[in-house]
Nucleic acid binder design. Structure first.
Length: 1168
RNA sequence: GCUCAAGUGGCGGAAUUGGUAGACGCGCUGGAUUCAAAAUCCAGUUUUUUCGGAAGUGCGGGUUCGAUUCCCGCCUUGAGUACCA
């Protein structure tokens, strides 16, 4: 009886479907095991043989685990939202849902015929409203959460509101927007609802913000960083530009450290972990502030008290971060006068809203009304000796920022509060008029300032008043600082200049008149160069001097400020402290512009290159850091920075918050409407908010996203439903969000949904989540390293924080399967043309016309010249070319792709097939120059693609060789993780293996298996196979177990073994790889149950015990012959037997061996 | 530039607590069967050779009784990443 794969496979696939053989239960006594594939995007092209590779591997593993007694969850679904369906819709008008549905059908048919053991009852589709209902629900959870750095987890937003109500935001340690205004509990309560919402939005884990985004005009949408390759869109390679838009973002940065730490706990491939680490980009260092010394700003005041050598310009915070802390502190500890006054000012008692201890620019003022631009300062005694300074500050505030400042003494406030209040009221009334005047004043003063700058060329600085109280800490800081981030604060004494990115906001402010033209010319030149050019051209050093200087925070020395495009505006603060001796870029810059390169390393030569090594080098010439090694110097430098207030230790991450809005149609709609411009979440019980129908899938004419075309897209807050846009005029009807969610939304949690895929009440039930917990093995491509896999980890950690899922990493182990490449076939076409210039009119047409298209077999030529000769000779021989015209004609070799289905195993082309191929209509009459009667093609390994005619469809393979052969062959190609070329011819090997296996169970035409006891040798074959296959599966080394099967079948064939004792367990071993044939033979052996329920055979070592060993006898490490010796010989006996052997004597040629190495059971080595 | 991975027959690949290099398969060669083909089966297939052997895992060193495996340097290919301060 022959092996008919088609019939067998069809029957068993039907059997599995009918009996729901692979349906997983959420209740089982068996241990659980969760094997997951990355679910596919159902593209219109269907599957090619590369796609199922990972699915086959995971299927083998899942089936193996079932044999091993596990309750296995092995689901499958579709990532069915996405751009291709939408673009197809734009072109054809077909609804994306329809094309998606059709594509899924094709996918399902293709997957089914490969015989996967998926539990289809748990199928998910991200575009199904029943699924995206919960994607929307998760979005709401994120919106309703903030990240508390103190507890280091996400918490409900209500806990934040509670803190605001009782203590304002001064004590809150959250991951939030950068520019946060501080407020007290009273202020919070006084804020309008909208204002409160605005503030909360700055803390939520998903938030609206005006972000610079990657806008792709051709696709009409925003792209995430990982969707851009070399400045072009990943899909379609369209140009991408930066653009500001209001977008939803996800505060993934809150999880940067935990995403990094979590990598230690999971068994994922090293390269993948590396790229996630790289993407998160943690760098530890410090923020350092450098004061800018410019004519108007460097006039410090003489120190009046215990002025040590410490420069004390920064009597307050060194930047807004520190100032904010300070403000909070001061708010918590008001002076008695401040406390009294605040009682009268807070809560709009004077009809105007006041804030206390508030940041204005970089001053902290006591009280301020922002709308009326009025500042009230209460001065204590300390201000007496600070009068001058306070005046300067008043001037600064009034002139630069347009505020009116009024001052009261402590005594005034305490003694005559009524007088003070009436004075404030008067000022408030005056402010409206004053504002206009102030504006004029500002203009004037700015002009004045310019004049001063010009006049003052001598820059000097003196030391200012040291910090003596909290109050005096305010008001020393304005935009006259450059903040830099550095990973090497230990090298701070090596700073000899600073560099700002040309786009840095301070550039225009600090550039001196003399340098203005230089700087402007340079900025103009860099602006012209695109980001890509700048990055590509690393070699050219360019920059310009601003004319300004900064002061070194420790040494007090003057440091010139340059601009240069090697500093990127987008990273860190867009400015660097340049340490030329320790950084190659700074070094190159310094050399190029003749800036000094001070050496701060002990015993290191820096005459040629910078010294970038950290370890083992001691710091020198660095005051208190001298003589210290990197680690100690780093710590001390940060300690001193913090102590003296010039900076603080900081960890910087490259990871940016993820933009979550897409201007697309085919994605999840947001459960969001807008009331007074503020986003409102729709209550979870009204979900899903279903994607509306639209006429056109393109953006609207006024540039709104495609959902702007919907006519039914407004939220009726009273009726709680989506209604027609016409009702927007009603009071309770609001516009809905027009953006949709990005592709990664649905894929960031689907693995949890499989645990309880049909639950309509919950995301997934608690019991199911607690039972399955996490994915045990996840298989998929490495291209998702920084996209899907990072976002999914982020959401999982968030859901974990909220107590929704029980574990904070969703996949314990992950394996990246390698890509299957195509083996393209090339035929070499001769393109003949007539040489220009010679009797073109006369000869051109008739000469050329007579020449047919010629193809030359691959091995007939090795060079272009040879190729031309071969073709010409052929043309002359066959009279296509007149010998007189020979010199006129030139022939060029033009390789073209031939469809791989036309090539046989020996690289020979099916010529008729080629001529009749629909794509080769032009070559119907072509002639082929053969070698030894056949036409050979050239072959090359390339990525599988339609245009290269090297795509192999699994349907054809399954039809001709069967699913079992396909499965075995894909595994046999090579290691799972490795990229490897597909060559269909190789499949005959595994196909004949299956036929050979089949034959073991048959005698002539009938199924016949003997009940006889197996021989020792047969048992040895079986058990060595059990051992190897089991080890291989557990190591995901599937290619080697296929060869193990082949060896076993070959051996059993030689032994003519047809014993049930051997052949029955053999089927269980094979069934994960070739389930159909195994089921068929299993049932023929009399089993009624599916083979998938059979336990895995148990390996017994006793069958492999040997009594003798065929020792390799080597001389000086080279094996020369083998010698069969009993294993129970002692070392001495082995040595004796070997040395007495005639071949040993011959090999030694009379010499005595110096040494004999004997490893019993392994090898004998004779050293001569 | 940096990081990682990999270089083994005509091809895919196997072998690593250091111990017989080339398993298994494709392709190729010869043979059997057949009127013939397909299919199947058998034998051979790293190179070289004076048929005794000898050399051989990208190249050059090293450690070792012994290295595809470990170490150092270099070359090549692939992947990722990039003025990240």
């Amino acid at each position: 009886m022959q092996y008919h794969h088609q019939e067998i496979e069809k029957n068993w696939q039907e059997f599995w479907a009918k009996n729901q053989t692979f349906k997983a239960s959420n209740h089982s006594d068996k241990p659980k095991y969760y094997v997951l594939d990355m679910f596919p995007y159902p593209s219109g092209a269907g599957l090619h043989v590369g796609h199922p590779l990972g699915y086959i591997a995971s299927d083998i593993y899942a089936r193996y685990k079932r044999h091993k007694g596990f309750n296995v969850l092995h689901p499958q679904g579709y990532d069915s939202f996405g751009l291709p369906a939408e673009q197809y819709a734009i072109q054809t008008g077909q609804h994306p849902a329809k094309t998606t549905e059709e594509n899924i059908k094709t996918y399902r048919r293709q997957l089914d015929q490969i015989g996967f053991s998926f539990d289809w009852s748990r199928e998910v589709r991200t575009s199904n409203p029943k699924y995206y209902k919960w994607t929307q629900w998760i979005f709401i959870q994120l919106f309703n959460s903030w990240y508390n750095k103190d507890t280091d987890k996400a918490e409900d937003i209500s806990t934040l509101e509670k803190i605001f109500k009782t203590a304002g935001n001064s004590k809150v340690n959250a991951v939030c927007d950068e520019e946060i205004t501080s407020f007290s509990a009273e202020e919070w309560k006084a804020f309008s609802k909208t204002a409160q919402e605005e503030i909360l939005l700055q803390y939520r884990l998903t938030f609206l913000s005006d972000t610079e985004v990657n806008w792709c005009p051709a696709l009409g949408t925003v792209l995430a960083n990982d969707e851009i390759v070399n400045g072009l869109s990943e899909r379609g390679s369209h140009p991408v530009v930066r653009k500001k838009m209001t977008q939803w973002s996800m505060r993934i940065s809150a999880y940067a450290q935990r995403l990094l730490d979590g990598l230690e706990t999971i068994d994922w491939p090293q390269p993948l972990k590396d790229s996630q680490r790289n993407w998160i980009g943690r760098s530890q260092g410090a923020m350092v502030s450098f004061e800018i010394l410019s004519p108007t700003l460097c006039e410090g005041k003489e120190a009046n008290s215990d002025s040590k050598k410490t420069p004390c310009y920064m009597t307050g915070g060194t930047n807004s971060y520190l100032l904010l802390e300070k403000a909070k502190e001061m708010r918590a500890n008001p002076t008695p006068a401040e406390a009294i006054l605040w009682k009268y000012l807070k809560g709009k008692k004077l009809k105007s809203k006041f804030r206390q201890q508030h940041l204005i620019n970089d001053f902290i003022v006591d009280f301020v009304c922002l709308t009326k631009k009025l500042i009230i300062e209460v001065d204590g005694k300390i201000h007496d000796y600070q009068l001058e300074k306070d005046e300067a500050r008043t001037l600064e505030l009034e002139q630069k920022s347009g505020f009116k400042v009024i001052r009261f003494k402590n005594e005034e406030v305490i003694g005559n509060i009524d007088g003070v209040i009436s004075k404030i009221e008067t000022e408030l009334n005056n402010q409206f008029f004053n504002l206009q005047k102030l504006e004029e004043k500002i203009k004037e003063s700015q002009e004045k300032e310019e004049n001063i700058k010009e006049k003052k060329t001598n820059i000097s600085h003196k030391q200012a008043t040291p910090t003596v109280s909290l109050s005096s800490g305010k008001g020393v800081r304005d935009r006259n600082y450059i903040d830099v981030f550095t990973t090497r604060p230990d090298t701070i004494y090596g700073v000899s200049f600073m560099t700002l990115a040309p786009e840095h906001e301070l550039v225009a402010k600090i550039t001196t008149e003399a340098q203005k033209s230089d700087v402007e010319a340079y900025i103009k030149a860099t602006a012209k160069r695109s980001e890509r050019d700048r990055m590509a051209d690393v070699k050219t050093i360019s920059g310009a001097f601003t004319g300004a200087f900064a002061m070194h925070p420790f040494s007090g020395e003057k440091v010139p400020i340059w601009i240069g495009d090697y500093v990127l505006a987008g990273y860190g603060t867009g400015a660097v402290m340049a340490v030329p001796c320790g950084d190659q870029r700074d070094y190159d810059f310094a050399k190029h512009f003749n800036i000094p390169i001070p050496n701060i390393f002990e015993g290191v030569d820096i005459s040629e290159v910078a010294h970038t090594d950290k370890d083992g080098t001691k710091i020198a010439n660095s005051d208190f850091l001298s003589g210290l090694k990197y680690k100690k110097a780093l710590k001390l430098a940060i300690f001193e920075l913090e102590k003296r207030g010039f900076g603080y230790g900081k960890v910087n991450y490259r990871l940016r918050d993820a933009v979550f809005s897409r201007q697309r149609y085919w994605g999840e709609p947001f459960p969001v409407y807008y009331k007074d411009g503020m986003p409102q979440m729709i209550d979870a019980k009204h979900l899903p908010i279903v994607l509306p129908e639209v006429e056109k899938y393109l953006p609207t004419e006024d540039g709104k996203p495609p959902l702007g075309n919907a006519t039914e897209w407004a939220w009726d807050a009273r009726a709680k439903k989506v209604v027609s846009n016409e009702k927007l005029k009603n009071k309770t009807v609001y516009p809905l969000e027009l953006n949709t969610m990005p592709g990664w939304a649905g894929s960031s949690w689907y693995f949890n949904r499989y645990m309880d895929a049909t639950n309509s009440e919950e995301f997934a039930s608690k019991e199911s989540l607690d039972y399955w917990k996490q994915v045990d093995v996840y298989i998929g491509g490495s291209e998702h390293a920084t996209g899907h896999l990072l976002y999914a980890r982020f959401w999982q950690k968030f859901l974990f924080d909220k107590g929704i899922v029980p574990v904070d990493e969703f996949a314990k182990k992950l394996i990246n399967q390698g890509m299957i490449l195509g083996t393209s076939a090339f035929v070499y076409k001769a393109t003949s043309f007539v040489r220009n210039g010679c009797n073109i009119e006369k000869s051109n047409d008739d000469v050329a016309e007579k020449i047919p298209t010629v193809f030359v077999s691959k091995n007939l030529f090795t060079s272009d010249e040879e190729f031309e000769t071969v073709v010409k000779n052929y043309l002359l021989d066959h009279k296509f070319l007149n010998p007189n015209d020979e010199s006129l004609v030139m022939v060029a070799n033009n390789p073209i792709h031939a469809d791989v289905s036309l090539i046989n195993a020996s690289d020979e082309l099916d010529i008729d097939g080629f001529k009749n191929h629909p794509l080769n209509a032009a070559y119907k009459n072509a002639v082929f120059i053969l070698e030894e009667g056949v036409f050979k093609v050239g072959r090359e390994v390339e990525k599988m693609s339609k245009s290269k005619y090297n795509v192999v469809n699994p349907d054809d393979i399954v039809k001709e060789y069967g699913a079992d052969a396909l499965r075995l062959f894909e595994m046999f190609l090579g290691p799972l993780e490795q990229a490897k070329p597909w060559k269909t011819s190789g499949i005959s090997g595994v196909y004949s293996f299956l036929k050979k296996l089949w034959k073991l169970y048959f005698k002539d035409e009938t199924f016949e298996v003997s009940e006889e006891k197996a021989t020792k040798e047969e048992l040895k074959t079986l058990h060595k196979t059990i051992k190897k296959v089991q080890e291989d599966i557990e190591n995901f080394s599937f290619n080697t177990s296929v060869s193990t099967f082949m060896i076993a079948v070959n051996e059993l064939t030689v032994l003519k073994c047809n014993k049930k004792e051997i052949l029955e367990p053999l089927l269980v071993l094979l069934s994960p790889y070739a389930p159909h044939i195994s089921e068929e033979l299993w049932s023929k052996l009399g089993h009624k149950e599916s083979i998938s329920t059979a336990p895995f055979p148990v390996f017994e070592a006793k069958h492999l015990v040997e009594s003798s060993k065929n020792y390799p006898i080597s001389f000086n490490g080279k094996m020369r012959f083998t010698l069969e010796l009993p294993l129970d010989l002692s070392t001495e006996e082995i040595e004796k037997a070997v040395l007495e052997h005639e071949k040993t004597i011959a090999q030694l040629e009379g010499a005595t061996p110096k040494k004999v190495i004997i490893v019993p059971g392994k090898i004998v080595n004779i050293v001569g």
